[in-house]
Amino acid sequence: MHKKEYSSSLFRGQKALDCDSISSDDVINRYIQTYGPLDWLNSKKAGSLAEAVLYASRYNAPDRYRLISKVLLQALEYGPDYVLGRVSKDARNMFNRSRRVCMEAHRANGFIRLTPVENPKGSFMVGKAEFRHDICDLVLRYFSRRHQGWKIYLISGNTNTEQAALTGQTACYLEKNVVKTVPVSDLPFELPGDDFERLWETYYESQYIEGRKNLALARKHLPQKYWSWVPEGNKLK
C-alpha cells in the first residue's frame, strides 16, 4: 500500500491487521443486516467481481484500494450486475484498471524472451522484464506452468524501486509459490548469451509481406515500451 493511501485508509494507526482473527461469517452477517439478503456472494458473479478486484488491486496508483472499496459498496447496495455491467463511472474505472493489469500480464507472457541455462545446480530459464503494475508473481506462475521442471528467473533493470537502487539489478523467482528477489550477482548461473536470436530474426523476416505493410498497426500491438524485450523490436522503428 502506498504511504499516501495508507494514511487515509481504515488501517491508519494500526501496525498490523491479523486476517486470521477476522471471521468472514461475522462480516457477511453485518452486511446482510445493512443491505439485506446477499445470496449472490456465493454465485459466479461474486467470483467474477473478486477476479476484477484482484487485478485492480495490482494497478499502480495510490487510490487503488479506495476505488475498489467504493465499487464493492456499490455492489452491496445495487447488486453485482450493476457493477459487473460497469454502469457507474467508478465501476468502469475499476474494470478498466483490471483490464490494463491483465493486458500487461498478457503482453509479458507473450513478449518476454527466455534463455535456457543448465548447470549442475539445476535447469533455469532467464528473461528480462520491467513491469508497471504488480504482476511479477502472475508472470512467474505462468512461465512455471509452461516450463515445468525449469526454474524461472526474471531480471528487472527497473531502478525506480528502492531495492533496485540499493542493490542494482535484481532477479525475481518463485520459491514455494512465493516471489523472492535476489541480486543478479548472486544468481546460481552466469548470465547467458543466446545465439538463437539469429534464427528467430531469419524466421521473423521470412514472414513479412511487403504488400501489406502497416507499421502503425504493428506499433499499436507491440508498443515501444516492449521493443527492448524482443530482438526484432528495432524493425518497428
Binding site: G110, F111, I209, E210, N214, H221, L236
Partner: peptide, 19 residues
Amino acid sequence: SGVCHSFLPDGRCISLFKV
C-alpha cells in the same frame, strides 16, 4: 486465445511457428 509473441511490420501477429 490471443497470446501473441510478436508483430510483423505488416501488423500481423506471430503466435505460432508457421512453416
